[in-house]
């Protein structure tokens, strides 16, 4: 049986997803997520020793395309969708210390 999800786990996941949750919401989602995970834990009860791992639900492999250039989008059209543009580039807020 996996460990129960804690309020700290939920706070961490919320932080990773850039969600600002109130204390009440943390409480609420901890309970809800625990219920979801309990449901998933049912699978753990099954004996799957003889079942090969599935890397994809669709039984396909090697779906490939040839290395041939196709037209790109018109830049004006692309940049028209952006909230802010400068020097033909997307202008975004600073991202201090968050580079991957």
């Amino acid at each position: 049986m996996p460990q129960k999800i804690t309020r700290d786990d939920v706070a961490h996941v919320a932080d990773l997803a850039r969600l600002a949750l109130s204390d009440d919401e943390l409480e609420q989602f901890t309970g809800q997520l625990a219920a979801v995970l309990d449901h998933a834990a049912d699978v753990e009860a099954l004996d799957v020793a003889d079942v090969p791992p599935t890397s994809h639900p669709v039984p396909l492999e090697n779906v490939l395309r040839d290395d041939v250039v196709t037209p790109s989008l018109d830049r004006a059209e692309v940049l028209a969708q952006a909230p802010a543009v400068e020097d033909d580039r997307f202008r975004v807020p600073p991202s201090l210390g968050q580079e991957p």
């Binding site: 395309r65 290395d67 041939v68 250039v69 196709t70 037209p71 790109s72 989008l73 830049r75 692309v78 940049l79 020097d87 033909d88 580039r89 997307f90």
Partner: peptide, 25 residues
């Protein structure tokens, strides 16, 4: 010649945001 998952050119030094399509955006 092209990107990993779409047919946009894999090209150094092109004008900004000219080698883009719905997949790589």
């Amino acid at each position: 010649a092209t990107k990993l998952f779409c047919g946009c050119p894999n090209q150094f030094g092109a004008e900004p945001n000219t080698n883009v399509c719905p997949v790589c955006l």
